[in-house]
Design a protein around this nucleic acid. Structure first.
Length: 834
RNA sequence: GCGGGUGUGGCGGAAUGGUAGACGCCGGGGACUUAAAAUCCCCUGAUCCUAUAGAUCGUGCGAGUUCGAGUCUCGCCACCCGCACCA
């Protein structure tokens, strides 16, 4: 018996050390057990763990610990996505080396994660900025180069002329560099690309097999890959040139009343001797790219005076330069069919071009007037010569067939997906392992010379890429001819680092990136958990790398992540005072109102939004753990909100979790190892909970599992001593062990049980105990509940009906009315229809 | 504009077409205590009411299917997210 309280400040650390010393969570790839690889998206070492991390890793941790209890050999690793721009920004602002900054952040965040008691195999930890890791990445990059999946070409970048650096699109704000504020220029640079488009079809069709991915993510990837099929064909122009266009609606070709080309199309550029053309092209470039601007942007065109000859009718149609045509999709030119494309409709309306109907609901609709918008839907082709009367799909096939046999066009599939540009003109990334030689050209670094490491003595005082500026680093002999040559100074996009890290976790030999046979033991990842913000890029790139590596025979894995789960954000109320934000720590809540701790002024309670530094609505996990310990925070992360939805943090909520931690501790008080006798109702509840909680955890329905554990706990507390109650208490303890492992170990030990509960098996249930022998029957009349009655399970329909009609309440409701029908659902209800 | 999602008490949320609101939080009342903390017990959707009983309403709105709809169908509304002049 005890009257003490559970003290996480001593217990948490004690159990964490116990797991560590026993190597409880080290994954053994040689184990005979079935394998389960549980992975959460590894963090960027920004400096502090935030609540979003805690939620993410708690979910993964519960699954990992649960799987272990279920007899799996579990791989649950952790590492650091350690390259990236924030480290360079810190170097510039705080004058620290990016490596030092990153290393100290990793140390701090690792300590934070360890305080939460995650069941991680730290022996496999690495950071992507470890030369060992990025050296293997360089080797893989060279392998991909040698199999033709890497190439170089000129590509446009956003160039900040003041910082002398390349900017990502999101660093360009209103056409200006985010840091310097300078007008951003477009520059053409030789850049490295990965041929992801080679796998477009496969990446798309592979989505169909990812049954355990959210539909939303699959759809987003599908749209991103953007497959469309149609006809590419050429118009003959009046100036003797030809104009290739691409259309997904060849069936509407008889409705074409103009052609439109992009401002940077070669034909438009060719007309640049005309100052009016130059002025118009300039005008097109000015248009903003924000959603709102595009929405309202007017369709603008410039009639070039050139005409195109319609391939079937031979009629001349005008060629415009237009601001709504994109150079980098299709051929940068389109045929305009105003009747059946909304953009073309707006354009034709503005420039008074003919709007013909070539598709109608049925063949009799040929003469129906057009409305005030384009009709983009299906139908029957009309006013189109030999296509008349054909359904749209047949007409498409017909036109493509004629174009192909006539030699003026061909059916073509066009993808939105572009090849992946991986060059970054930055320091803090994986050096691209190539050398530029005047004689030999671009030459890969010899594998035995890897890794190509980053120099440490760098200077962030002057703008530009530090690798480019470094006194000696880029000078090296050519690996092929030995003459003086120049090292590549671009580094790889950090998305490359995160495209194969899950392979390195599963297998990390010294002399190779990974071992295919080890990989085969663990992959695919059984549960991959992370934020929805990675729905497209990271997940697509990781799928691509997996395919590319399989393609060159390095691994035999089709898809890296069998089951993907995207968790919601952790949110918090916001507090505003005089136009500034206040942090929750500086606010006192009294009933409906909130006041500033400092000065006492009333504070406006704002919306509940994602925790962010800018809104100051952040709660630091470390402070919470200091106050309540790891288990309360973990329990909070799992309670209440379904994991895919946002979780609103609240002081009251964590208090409630803390109370429950103590309730669990006190269960030990009522555990009486000498008690005997059966409490069938409680035993039944316990057996039912064992099954239900397991199902909930497997479906990631943690909030439901939590509710069931609360219910059983309340029942066990109320019950008198019995062996059944002891069973229930042991069951509770084992069921919460994956969620609140510290208090579970503590109680487990206090009850005198052997070993660690972390090593224990999931409690056994008895099927016979799942079945109730009495059920509650609802009795309805006129669609409303009139009475409930208790009946033995499996009672005959007639008996239930008789029982229902015997009810006084039912009789009162019936009030002598004639019974037309009685519906009896066994073990559930009786519905009387009058 | 296109695509997707969500809508249930004061709040977070439960609910194989079958007792709506499990469980948690907040709130109210009480016990224990010199007092507090901690803990325990009871109440807690709304309205009506002759008030330990009973009735009516109630899952964004409007229809429909059904003996029975939060759940299925159709039509709206609101909010959130993603993509975006992709031909």
């Amino acid at each position: 018996m005890t009257d003490t309280r559970f003290d996480p400040s001593s217990a948490d650390g004690r159990w964490q050390r116990a797991w560590d010393e026993a190597g409880t969570f080290a994954a053994d790839s040689n184990s005979d057990k079935p394998k389960s690889y549980i992975l959460e998206m590894f963090p960027y070492p920004s400096g502090r763990i935030h609540m979003g991390h805690v939620r993410n890793y708690t979910m993964g941790d519960v699954i990992a610990r649960y799987k272990k209890m279920r007899g799996y050999e579990v791989l649950h690793p952790m590492g650091w996505d350690a390259f990236g721009m924030p480290a360079e920004n810190a170097a510039m602002e705080k004058k620290v080396h990016p490596g030092e900054w990153t290393r100290s952040n990793i140390a701090a965040m690792k300590a934070q994660l360890q305080r939460i008691g995650f069941a991680l195999d730290w022996t496999r930890e690495f950071a992507t900025c470890d030369p060992e890791y990025y050296g293997h990445e360089q080797a893989l990059f060279i392998d991909l180069y040698e199999s033709g999946l890497v190439y170089r070409r000129q590509s446009e970048v956003n160039w900040d002329p003041v910082d002398m650096t390349v900017l990502a699109n999101e660093q360009v704000i209103d056409g200006k560099g985010w840091r310097s504020g300078a007008e951003v220029e477009k520059r053409k640079l030789d850049q490295w690309f990965l041929k992801i488009t080679d796998f477009a079809e496969d990446l798309l069709s592979g989505l169909g097999d990812l049954k355990d991915w959210p539909d939303k993510v699959r759809l987003m990837q599908e749209n991103w890959i953007g497959k469309s099929s149609g006809l590419e064909f050429s118009f003959e122009l009046s100036n003797g040139e030809t104009l290739p266009v691409y259309t997904t609606r060849p069936d509407t070709i008889f409705g074409a009343s103009f052609c439109a080309i992009a401002a940077d199309h070669a034909i438009a550029q060719g007309l640049a001797s005309d100052p009016k053309v130059v002025a118009f092209i300039e005008e097109c470039k000015k248009g903003g790219t924000t959603a709102a601007e595009l929405e309202t942007a007017e369709k603008l065109g410039f009639d070039t005076g050139v005409t195109a000859k319609h391939p079937f009718t031979g009629e001349p149609i005008p060629v415009f330069i237009a601001n709504f045509v994109l150079m980098d999709y299709g051929t940068g030119a389109v045929m305009g069919v105003p009747g059946h494309d909304q953009r073309d409709f707006e354009f034709a309306t503005k420039y008074e071009l003919p709007i013909a109907r070539v598709v109608a609901k049925d063949a009799s609709g040929a003469a129906a007037p057009m409305g005030n918008e384009a009709e983009a839907g299906d139908g029957i082709v009309v006013n189109s010569d030999f296509l008349d009367g054909k359904p749209v799909d047949d007409a498409k096939a017909d036109v493509i067939a004629r174009a192909e046999s006539g030699g003026w066009g061909e059916g073509k599939t066009v993808w939105r997906l572009r090849d992946w540009g991986v060059s970054r003109q930055r320091y803090w990334g994986t050096p691209i392992p190539f050398v530029h030689c005047e004689t030999c050209g671009v030459v890969p670094v010899a594998k035995d010379q890897l890794p190509v490491t980053l120099p440490d003595d760098i200077d962030f005082e002057t703008p530009g890429n530090p690798l480019e500026r470094h006194a000696t680093w880029k000078h090296c002999p050519c690996p092929k001819c030995g003459k003086d040559a120049r090292r590549e100074t671009d580094t790889l996009d950090t998305f490359v680092d995160s495209s194969w890290y899950f392979l390195r976790f599963a297998s990390q030999p010294d002399n190779a990136p990974f071992d295919a046979q080890e990989i085969a033991k663990w992959l695919p990842v059984q549960h991959y958990i992370g934020g929805i913000e990675h729905a497209i890029l990271h997940l697509l790139y990781a799928r691509f790398w997996t395919r590319a590596l399989a393609h060159i025979g390095k691994i035999d894995v089709a898809e890296p992540f069998a089951d993907l789960f995207t968790q919601g954000m952790v949110t918090h109320e916001t507090y505003g005072l005089n136009g500034a934000w206040l942090s929750p720590a500086d606010v006192r809540i009294e009933g409906e109102k909130a006041f500033a701790v400092d000065g006492g002024a009333e504070v406006e309670r704002g919306r509940v939004v994602k925790m962010s530094k800018s809104k100051k609505n952040v709660v630091d996990p470390d402070n919470i753990i200091d106050q309540y310990g790891a288990d309360a925070v973990r329990w909070f992360m799992l309670s209440d909100s379904p994991p895919e939805r946002d979780l609103p943090w609240s002081e009251a909520g964590i208090e409630g979790c803390w109370r429950f931690v103590q309730r669990l501790w006190r269960l030990f008080d009522v555990y009486d190892s000498g008690a005997s006798g059966e409490d069938k109702a409680l035993a039944r509840k316990a057996h039912q909970a064992i099954v239900a909680v397991a199902e909930d955890i497997e479906a990631l329905g943690f909030n439901k599992a939590v509710a069931r554990i609360y219910e059983l706990t309340a029942a066990a507390e109320k019950a008198g001593p019995s062996e059944s109650r002891n069973f229930a208490i042991r069951a509770i303890l084992h069921m919460v062990a994956p969620m609140m492992p510290h208090v579970a170990e503590e109680v487990h030990e206090a009850m005198g049980a052997d070993g660690l509960i972390a090593d224990a098996a999931w409690p056994q249930h008895d099927d016979a105990m799942l079945v109730e022998d009495e059920v509650t029957i609802a009795v309805q009349h006129k669609g409303k509940l009139r009475d409930t009655l208790t009946a033995p399970k499996g009672a005959a329909k007639e008996d239930l009906e008789a029982l229902a009609l015997a009810s006084e309440k039912v009789q009162r409701s019936l009030d002598g009315a004639e019974i037309r029908k009685v519906i009896v659902v066994p073990d559930r209800l009786v519905n009387i229809v009058t």
